[in-house]
Computed example of a mutant assay.
Amino acid sequence: MSTIAPLVVSTVRSFRASPPANGSTSTTISSSSVRPAPGKSWLACALGNRACRDGFSVLYKRVPRLFADLAQARGEGRLARLIAALERVNLLILDDWGPEALTADQRRDLLEIVDDRYDKGSLLITSQVPVSQWHDVIAEPMTS
Rank of each mutant, 00 (worst) to 15 (best):
P38V: 04
L66F: 12
V131E: 14
L110M: 15
N22I: 00
E100G: 03
A80G: 02
V58K: 07
W97T: 03
S31G: 11
L86N: 02
C45E: 15
E87R: 03
A17F: 03
R81W: 00
V89K: 06
S41V: 01
V114Q: 13
T103K: 05
S10N: 12
F15V: 02
S14Y: 11
S127H: 06
S30W: 09
R35N: 08
P19Q: 13
L43W: 15
L59K: 13
A46G: 04
Y118L: 05
L86H: 02
E76M: 07
C45L: 15
V34N: 13
A101C: 12
P99H: 07
R74M: 00
W97Y: 12
Y118D: 12
V114S: 14
S31A: 08
L94C: 09
A84Q: 13
D136V: 00
Q106K: 01
L59N: 11
A68F: 05
P20A: 08
L102Q: 05
D119V: 00
C52N: 15
K61A: 09
I93A: 05
L82N: 06
R62Y: 09
T25M: 14
A44K: 07
V137M: 09
P130M: 07
G121V: 01
L86W: 02
L110A: 15
E100F: 04
I29R: 07
A37M: 07
G23A: 04
A17V: 02
R117Q: 08
V34Q: 14
I125D: 14
I113S: 10
D115A: 06
S127I: 01
S31T: 05
S18Q: 14
A46Q: 13
R81E: 15
L110S: 14
N49S: 12
D69N: 08
R108D: 15
I93V: 13
A17Q: 12
I113N: 11
R81M: 05
T25I: 10
L43T: 15
L70R: 07
L94K: 02
S122N: 06
A46P: 00
L94A: 09
S127M: 06
V131S: 10
S30P: 00
K61D: 10
A21R: 06
C52H: 14
S122E: 11
R108C: 03
S10D: 15
V63M: 11
